[in-house]
Design a binder for these strands. Sequence first.
DNA 1: TAGCTTAATGAAAAGGTTTTCATGGATATA
DNA 2: TATATCCATGAAAACCTTTTCATTAAGCTA
Lengths: 338, 338
Amino acid sequence: MSSIKDVARLAGVSISTVSRVLNKSAPVSKDKRVRVEKAARDLGYVPNPAARTLLLRETGVLGVVVPYATGEFFSEFLSGVDQTASDNGRFLLISISHRSDRDLHRALANLNKRVDGLVVWAPEVDAADVAELVGDELPLVFLNSLDSAKGNDLIDFDNYGGMYAVATHLIELGHRDIVFIKGPPRASDAASRLRGFRAALLEHAIELRPGRELQGEYTVEAGYNLVNTILSLEPRPTAIMAPNDQSAVGVLRGLHEAGVVVPDEMSVTGFDDVPSSSFATPTLTTAHVPVRELGEIAIRKLVERIEGRDELAQVHLSVDLVVRNSSGPPHRSKASTS
Amino acid sequence: MSSIKDVARLAGVSISTVSRVLNKSAPVSKDKRVRVEKAARDLGYVPNPAARTLLLRETGVLGVVVPYATGEFFSEFLSGVDQTASDNGRFLLISISHRSDRDLHRALANLNKRVDGLVVWAPEVDAADVAELVGDELPLVFLNSLDSAKGNDLIDFDNYGGMYAVATHLIELGHRDIVFIKGPPRASDAASRLRGFRAALLEHAIELRPGRELQGEYTVEAGYNLVNTILSLEPRPTAIMAPNDQSAVGVLRGLHEAGVVVPDEMSVTGFDDVPSSSFATPTLTTAHVPVRELGEIAIRKLVERIEGRDELAQVHLSVDLVVRNSSGPPHRSKASTS
DNA sequence: TAGCTTAATGAAAAGGTTTTCATGGATATA
DNA sequence: TATATCCATGAAAACCTTTTCATTAAGCTA
């Protein structure tokens, strides 16, 4: 593999001159310039990133830490992240599933000197912990964490407002007995969504019957498995709010198998608005979470920080209700009896 | 940020000794060893990867090039890749969407010295091109490319056999007029799937009517948009084979809206067996592609190559038929009229 | 106790790049 | 023509680590 020395020898100049030509960092006489350019081309010379990094303390790599990679939701995010990173000429070091805090800690410690900055999406971990672990030279952008570690950007969705809007939609349709499936216990976004639901109920002076808040997860299976429990509630609720689209799809499937017609006998809502939710049967009423944009903005912010164009900010992305066919008014004849 | 020098000074030894202790590369007297360990811990010392790389020519990073990141299919793959990489103590440099060959080429050229090896999934690109571009010091593992570049591993799915099995399944159910939706024109996996379909027809001496092979894509929209075209074919076909699950979901949606009952009036099949396809309405008959395993095996192979445990191989992963509710015998009463 | 082997340790080089500093030549000014 | 200024260029240092080589001290044998 050729080094800058080889280029210098071939072009008959010093390595300093080669560096100056290739980086356009200082004027070089025309004849030497063309000789260097030709030599570099002929040798297929590419600067050694390790050497540059060692000297410049700059890797050209952005680190991204995400909690899971499964499903459409995160793949949309990664897609936005990748696009923006490559637009900015940066590479992406991605660190996905961390089965334990220790996992995450070790990953962060090692990431530290391999990247110029870090996007951290770790809903179950303290932002302050991460910031401390990583040292404060490294620019950080936190995504959807409750507390922003001081001196770093925080970008999040309005999970609260989104779920509030979904609940309000159901209430305005006439629903008074709604089941809410909760997301992962420790996830901060799940907590916000739950608060949004409760706030809407409070707002409309609706009392929550017992057993209407069920522990779930962000998976299809979780939604599917809860259907029987829900259908055996007395009196039978008229609507089910799932914590995300995936679990809503599970609920739809379970209801379908139980012969419960959506939305006539039961309304169902999701959250996220992943692409396929507009192709569910029936199409899913949900809240649109701009997750692709989140990826784009996160990287853009991070690059700004790295390049010193500092404009520390907290960005809140709005989450909008999307009404489709899985929600409708409660159907007296069946729903309130049983 | 602390360097090995700081550790050496704090422990009162030379940097050589520090290196020996930290890498356990040579015996060091007990008292110095504990002093070094304590100093390193107190300073939170982490070796600078750039310096190590420069000297050792080893980055600890694996590169992964994939064509898209959208949808469950690739997220399953990435999940397997990530898991295995982190089990092996390696980091992951992921390079996703390449809008053009030039994009890909530039990415590969720059990836070269940043990684110890590369997993390349580029169904539309010549393996030989990639191999040449990247230089032959770098271990490569090709995924689902037609030709394996010499001296490198190739792992692929039996796309041919999988689609052959799906077609045979439909034929055995009694279908004689099947529509096949083709995947992206240049994708080699799509080509194999098409060949599998044709082979099954040939095998059973079934002649393909005109207009039964339609150009599609791997997206929900593509499947959805083709439904009207298919329904207006004369005579109306009795089954639709989509090139992947996503497009099959689109087809299902379109048929549902057109009031065509699946599988009574029309059978529909997918390919991939992504997790959600067992939750479609109706549940989808498809072929199970072990994409998560592909990710795991690819990384394992690559690590073996890097560590010199060379066992060059071509691995074929089998693709098995999964029969669910979207396929059934053709229903004479409706299907063969109109 | 002298001479030898062994073990532990430090000094120094190497890896590839960028940039500062110094030097040489050329050009412009007086 | 001599002097001052400027520009192009090369040498060398620095970034941080691992490892070879040489040195010193210690332990052992005769």
